[in-house]
Design a protein around this nucleic acid. Structure first.
Lengths: 213, 213
DNA sequence: GGTATTCAAATTGGCGCCAATTTATGCGCC
DNA sequence: GGCGCATAAATTGGCGCCAATTTGAATACC
């Protein structure tokens, strides 16, 4: 089937045209567009140097992702952080990531563990020399790799999606530098637990890591 | 804040303008647009009696929902049913819905149980006198109500979303009438288990119900 | 002096056109 | 008779314009 070829071609061209949706998303995640900010189409058009339809498509997608709220004839604004929703999403993450701990331990190869260590180290490095957004993405990369070991690809995508759903300000999630460093140590401990095939410990670590307690 | 008022107004006007996205979605779910079907914009424009931009917005949303695949300069087609992905989504549903069994049992009031019985009966009724789509929606309504009792609203929305993600042909999910009737009985049994506050039984029933074994 | 009203500026959002790409058809060629 | 190529038809997708709605402000009125 040649649809696959066409898709492959499209993916190869993807990096050269950075999608506007992704750019706005990163600005929201980085806190450059704080919750409540009105996203005027004409501003976005100039800011990202793109056309009106592109802006509108991006805004519509962000509404679907629940990151932006749309009010007819009024416009779009960055969704206000909802404490209850953030709590609920954390609960869902705990359920999912704790539930696949056994599969992660069962499937993790030496190569997987090595890769996790690299990602954990990268996070620790960025604590000192990186921006908040870089830190956010390094953290995401670690958790994606971790989940991927469980063998359920849909789960990886799903958790990535719901992570974005509330973290309008991922900055606010890690209040202090001490907490960030703590997160880095927890990553290491999680990899250790996987290496020791200690399912119970991994579950408990995962739960505490996500709930940040 | 007057944004809330505006939102309320918008929601009130929603039912009068049936969104094109929803219409296409229902046609895909009902099997009227089978997997692989090419969705030509001009056809959709005429079929749903709407404009070109509306069609494009709807298609883009369905791509985001993973129900439709987009190939640049070729067009959009209904996503082919992927066996592995369907399996993965089922696994995720099992994890989530089994995990909140305890909360459901803990929170379920007499009114909740009565409402569940009504929805279960409605499903049974539609087995005889309803279309596949009606059945699909009655089933969805039951499971939404069930999950809602757990008290995590995000979870309800999430499961609703991932349900759509693979069930391009929900028809194919229930192969025989016997299996559908079985599902109806399982609904009843699940409500019974909740009423008896039997968490273990509810968990096992839920698992079997979702995996259809 | 405060409030209601009207008018103007700004913003949203619907709609259609046209270029670019792809697919189908018919012709010539091997 | 089958295959390759060029042309034509069809489809996608980018882009800008203009109407409808809303917001802000100035003015008149109480």
């Amino acid at each position: 089937m040649n649809s696959l070829e066409a898709e492959a071609t499209a993916q190869a061209q993807e990096p050269q045209t950075p999608d506007v949706t992704e750019l706005i998303l990163q600005d929201i995640l980085a806190g450059r567009l704080p919750p409540g900010t009105w996203l005027k189409q004409i501003d976005l058009e100039r800011r990202y140097n793109c056309t009106r339809p592109e802006v509108r498509r991006a805004l519509d997608r962000l509404v679907q992702k629940r990151l932006v709220e749309h009010i007819p004839n009024r416009g779009y604004h960055v969704h206000e952080q909802d404490g209850r929703r953030a709590q609920e999403v954390s609960d869902i993450r705990v359920i999912l990531e704790v539930a696949v701990s056994d599969r992660i331990v069962a499937n993790a190869s030496a190569a997987d563990i090595a890769k996790l260590r690299v990602l954990a180290l990268r996070f620790d490095d960025l604590v000192l020399n990186g921006t908040m957004l870089e830190l956010y993405e390094a953290n995401l990369a670690f958790h994606r790799e971790l989940l991927a070991i469980a063998g359920n690809q849909e789960l990886v995508e799903l958790v990535t999606e719901i992570r974005q759903r509330t973290s309008s300000a991922p900055v606010s999630q890690w209040r202090t530098r001490a907490r960030i460093e703590q997160s880095g140590r927890e990553h290491q401990q999680m990899v250790d637990a996987i290496e020791r095939r200690d399912i119970g410990h991994l579950m408990e670590l995962t739960r505490r890591h996500i709930l940040q307690i």
